[in-house]
């Protein structure tokens, strides 16, 4: 499912003294099947933009096209219910939204709500639990007895159980330990490959952007600052610094090394493997 924004503006509490514009004239495309990263500071409009992706917010002006469905300021909420099933959003700290008696019931809640039978929903829940690597013996436990990382996987499985075509992730690894972070990121990668999902990732972790995304959208103060491939976006360390954006570790290291020594990088490396490749080549040539 491809997504297009055309001249989208969004104003919170319009026509009140608290009026605040959060999005300014945003036009962009998220290609179908892409792994798109949205980066920008806290307050850059990432969360506002994200809530437009399944109609939780409607634009104040402009329009959004998701596959064939067009959302304008006057679209009725009733027309958006199918969209909510197609675009699944995993919000920040989604484990705060768990509520059922057992893990399995919690994951099955979404599909049941959208009209699946008890049996269908339970079967789907089992599949999804498996997909996010939750061991079978946890399924009948209370979700509140699990560890933080496990709870988060239950919440993600709950969204997956609605079988969305687009999975939107708002800082899915925040607050997890490094191993938990790596596991979760690998799960999304596998989902994209096996289930052909379009993935939209909001993150501050530039290493994840470098490693997983193939399309990057940069927001600043509610405006679209840039979009392109990770290689394009991270090619100019000085530009990123000017906009107070972090670099992937390998890019930052290469940039520091270039300033200090005889190393030259024709293409800024994004991961330690790419960096090691270029370093070995240059060391080899001279040797």
């Amino acid at each position: 499912m491809s997504i297009h924004f055309k001249n989208v503006n969004y104003i919170y509490q319009q026509a009140t003294p608290f009026e605040q514009q959060a999005l300014f004239d945003i036009s962009l495309t998220i290609p179908s099947g892409s792994y798109t990263a949205i980066i920008g500071h806290t307050g850059s409009g990432k969360s506002t933009l994200l809530q437009h992706l399944n109609g939780l917010l409607k634009p104040t002006s402009g329009q959004i096209t998701i596959e064939k469905q067009i959302i304008t300021p006057t679209t009725k909420n009733k027309a958006l219910s199918s969209l909510r099933k197609q675009v699944g959003i995993v919000f920040q700290f989604p484990e705060a939204q768990l509520f059922e008696e057992t893990v399995l019931k919690d994951i099955a809640f979404g599909p049941k709500n959208f009209g699946s039978s008890e049996q269908e929903a339970t079967q789907l829940a089992r599949q999804m639990a498996h997909l996010v690597n939750l061991p079978e013996e946890l399924l009948e436990k209370s979700p509140f007895e699990l560890s933080g990382g496990q709870m988060r996987r239950v919440a993600i499985a709950g969204i997956l159980a609605m079988e969305p075509q687009v999975l939107v992730l708002d800082e899915p690894t925040a607050g997890l330990d490094p191993r938990g972070r790596a596991e979760i990121m690998e799960i999304f990668q596998a989902l994209r490959i096996k289930q052909h999902l379009t993935i939209i990732l909001v993150t501050h972790q530039m290493d994840d952007v470098a490693r997983y995304a193939n399309h990057v959208i940069v927001l600043e103060k509610g405006r679209l600052l840039a979009s392109g491939t990770p290689t394009e976006i991270f090619s100019d360390p000085d530009w990123l610094r000017t906009h107070h954006l972090a670099l992937p570790q390998a890019t930052r290291f290469a940039s520091a090394l270039q300033k200090k020594s005889g190393f030259e990088f024709s293409k800024m490396p994004l991961t330690e493997e790419e960096l090691a490749n270029q370093l070995v080549q240059q060391l080899g040539k001279r040797g």
Binding site: F253, A256, L257, K260, S261, G262, F263, Q282, L283, R286
Partner: peptide, 8 residues
Amino acid sequence: IDWLCQSI
């Protein structure tokens, strides 16, 4: 970085 500089 120092080690790499020396190596090159």
